[in-house]
């Protein structure tokens, strides 16, 4: 098993945001999580990436229990994620924003910085090269030296991808990557996700844009009120009666 959750549950006060979810992410595939608003999708991501502690249940990554690990340690193991909105340092260039993404693979500390040691120079160079590489991968070479506040919404999404990729992940969790961009741009991001998979990076995403999901995903899980109501291939999900009811009965926001 690559990455799986076992009976994962999260309660906020009396509210159950994620309820007893078993899910396994298939390596080298595009996995999607869908569901109406408030179904607990983002919370599910937050638990896996270690931002929120789970109330009960486990997250297992490559046979290792990562449930209790802090998010920075989880990132080091090769689990990256993006957020719905990425806060970039706007008075700086795109490249400068992405360089820090590879920080977790470096060892140089404050003393190296102050003394400008050899390790400092090699690692600075290493992070810079990594940033250039991932920016090229996401197709932003042309924008690398632009100020972060001057790029488009779609470019910002790609920067978020680049930042996640700079951590050298094995699996990337994307939280609504296509929110707020137009259909053409969505198409472009879908291609990028497929490119990531080709490169050997497993993708797991939350998305509301059904057309895209059905087209690119290999496996879909449907959450409703924090519970898993269905799981399967796009074809299976589209024909699933419970899913259709959940979408029609609940808020039709998808």
């Amino acid at each position: 098993m690559f990455l799986e959750t076992k009976h994962l549950t999260k309660q906020f006060g009396g509210l159950v945001a994620v309820n007893n979810v078993d899910f396994s992410i298939e390596k080298g595939k595009i996995n999607a999580i869908i569901g109406p608003n408030g179904a607990g999708k983002s919370t599910f991501f937050n638990i896996i990436s270690g931002l929120h502690p789970s109330s009960s249940g486990q997250v297992i990554f490559k046979g290792k229990d990562i449930t209790k690990l802090p998010s920075n340690k989880i990132a080091k193991l090769g689990v990256a994620r993006t957020f719905q909105t990425t806060h970039l340092f706007e008075q700086s260039t795109v490249l400068d924003n992405v360089i820090v993404g590879h920080r977790l693979r470096t060892k140089s500390n404050l003393l190296d910085a102050v003394l400008r040691t050899k390790r400092f120079w090699t690692e600075e160079q290493k992070c810079r090269e990594k940033a250039i590489e991932v920016l090229d991968f996401v197709g932003l070479t042309h924008a690398a030296h632009k100020m972060a506040d001057s790029i488009t919404q779609e470019e910002k999404k790609r920067v978020a991808f680049a930042l996640a990729l700079a951590t050298d992940p094995e699996v990337v969790f994307l939280d609504e990557p296509a929110a707020g961009i137009n259909p053409d741009e969505t198409e472009g991001l879908a291609l990028l996700m497929e490119k990531m998979v080709q490169k050997g990076i497993t993708v797991c995403l939350i998305e509301h844009k059904m057309q895209m999901i059905m087209k690119i995903s290999d496996k879909i899980m449907v959450l409703n009120h924090g519970e898993k109501i269905a799981e399967g291939t796009p074809e299976e999900i589209m024909g699933n009666q419970t899913v259709i009811e959940a979408y029609l009965g609940g808020s039709v926001s998808a």
Partner: peptide, 27 residues
């Protein structure tokens, strides 16, 4: 030297968003 280093970038990343900083592996 601190500001113009990976350490400095790390601090700025924390300022921009602590959650994001953490998920890119920064303690």
């Amino acid at each position: 030297r601190i500001v113009h280093s990976l350490s400095g970038r790390t601090f700025i990343a924390i300022r921009n968003s602590e959650e994001l900083a953490q998920t890119i592996g920064i303690s």
